[in-house]
């Protein structure tokens, strides 16, 4: 075999995927960076050039800043809920010695396959004015008027937690499953209580999975616009809703580009910090 031909082979194999990612992701992202300096004109075609107008608007108008902070706050609260609600079941499945482990695992992966829009709208059946919860409480006579449970920040966070929890459980489970059980036996035989063994051995060793799950929950919730539309009220718009409105509703593509770049930079820096601390390779482990 010719040495040069075999050196070419990996590039030949890579080229279709590499071209796809370059032409459909890398170049377009650079393109919207350039586009964000263009100007929208009333006549239709946007004028190219180097104008700071969009950036001055995005960076100085408190409207955008407030929604950005609100988006990050919602993402943070969602992530904290996912950590608390996700760690315990992952721990239960990983440590359980019953034969039902496969079934439990299957149930854990199942929500991944159930449509996001269905899972989001399913909460309307429960929290709506004539939904399950209100009907139940009315029938029992606990309340006399339906409560307004939907279309507020709380219902948005609830929907996001429901959507993202499987990501957390799966990532934590993968790192818990990889822990050498002998370490726990060793800790106990050296006199550690169950709680101490958990705190000193299990918890630190499961940190990479917890961090990977938290990253996914944070980034995915901060980038959503569907959940706030379905479960939120008019005042619950998140940052991605601004992007959608600018691009699709107002057709202000230069402004939409600038807003997209802001979202990319903010969430990208979260990913970079995570990469320094843990490494993005951790996320790939859930696919093994």
């Amino acid at each position: 075999m010719d040495g040069r031909a075999s050196a070419m082979r990996p590039w030949l194999l890579l080229s279709p995927a590499l071209a796809t990612v370059t032409l459909l992701l890398v170049v377009p992202v650079m393109f919207i960076l350039v586009y964000s300096f263009w100007l929208r004109t009333a006549t239709g075609a946007d004028t190219s050039g180097f104008h700071l107008d969009n950036w001055i608007e995005v960076l100085t108008d408190p409207f955008y800043r407030d929604i950005l902070f609100k988006t990050l706050r919602i993402a943070l609260v969602t992530t904290l809920f996912c950590i608390v609600l996700g760690y315990v079941p992952a721990y239960f499945i990983a440590m359980s010695r019953t034969g039902n482990k496969t079934l439990l695992l299957l149930l854990l992966i199942l929500p991944f396959w159930i449509s996001y829009i269905i899972r989001t709208m399913s909460w309307i059946n429960i929290l709506g004015a004539s939904g399950g919860l209100n009907s139940l409480l009315l029938t029992l006579g606990i309340i006399s008027e339906p409560m307004r449970l939907l279309y507020n920040e709380g219902s948005v966070i609830l929907g996001l937690v429901h959507f993202l929890l499987p990501f957390m459980v799966l990532n934590v489970y993968v790192s818990l499953e990889a822990i050498d059980r002998n370490l726990l036996d060793a800790a106990r035989s050296l006199g550690a209580s169950d709680l101490q063994a958990f705190r000193e051995v299990t918890l630190p060793l499961s940190m990479p999975g917890l961090a990977a799950g938290a990253l996914l929950c944070f980034v995915l919730s901060a980038g959503t616009y569907i959940t706030p539309v379905v479960l939120g009220g008019p005042r619950d718009a998140m940052f991605a809703n601004l992007v959608f409105d600018a691009i699709i509703t107002q057709l202000d593509w230069p402004l939409g580009s600038a807003l997209s770049i802001v979202l990319l930079v903010v969430l990208g820096s979260v990913v970079l910090v995570y990469n320094r601390l843990v490494g993005v390779g951790q996320i790939a482990k859930s696919f093994g």
Binding site: V29, I247, L263, V271
Partner: peptide
Amino acid sequence: APILVPEVVLAVALLLF
């Protein structure tokens, strides 16, 4: 990278390009 870039940003970039 397509997983790491927020999907909204990917959508805008591809559409506009």
